[in-house]
């Protein structure tokens, strides 16, 4: 199918099979490689992106289900976003492979919750990390909440 999509405020037109998961359109067609392939079944969260600000697992989301939503990938996250600042300041990544997905999950959490509790953080941040950066992710979410509050 011919598909037009808006990724990070940029318009693209691609030709891909309708059952192609959005992940592979982003990676193989648009060369937006920041979004990662981890499990192919929506289990690990490495492929997390935002559709109109809501997180989805793009490895299991066929492009035929797109309804003109605005797509945000890691490449579209403002480098000055409090989440990115916090992630950088605390040197969160180890291998880094899951971090695009982690960051996008945190961006949503921050958008939707001004003062997240531990439970909010745990339920929003279900992305897997085999390096075990969870303690630093937790701290970075706290710091980004603080940074956002200061910004406001």
């Amino acid at each position: 199918m011919k598909l037009s999509l808006v990724v990070n405020n940029k318009k693209y037109s691609v030709e891909a099979d309708s059952d192609t998961p959005l992940l592979w359109v982003l990676r193989d067609h648009l060369q937006l490689n920041g979004t990662k392939f981890g499990c192919g079944e929506g289990l690990c969260g490495a492929c997390t992106i935002l559709l109109d600000g809501n997180p989805i697992r793009s490895c299991s989301f066929p492009i035929s289900s797109l309804k003109d939503q605005a797509i945000t990938t890691i490449e579209g996250v403002d480098p000055n976003h409090p989440v990115v600042q916090a992630w950088t300041k605390l040197d969160v990544p180890q291998c880094g492979y899951c971090q695009s997905g982690q960051i996008l999950s945190a961006v949503v959490l921050l958008d939707k919750t001004s003062n997240p509790t531990d439970e909010d953080v745990q339920s929003a941040m279900k992305n897997l990390c085999r390096c075990g950066t969870y303690p630093e992710i937790k701290k970075a979410v706290e710091l980004s909440t603080e940074l956002k509050r200061k910004e406001a």
Binding site: D28, I74, W87, T88, D91, P93, G96, Y97
Partner: peptide, 27 residues
């Protein structure tokens, strides 16, 4: 000291094996 790989790992530009793109490449 801060890690040398942090900047590219928080903005999605770090090149992992799976991200390698070559002209004329098949998958």
């Amino acid at each position: 000291m801060p890690r040398v790989d942090t900047p590219s790992k928080v903005n999605g530009t770090a090149v992992f094996g799976i991200d390698v793109q070559l002209p004329d490449m098949l998958i």
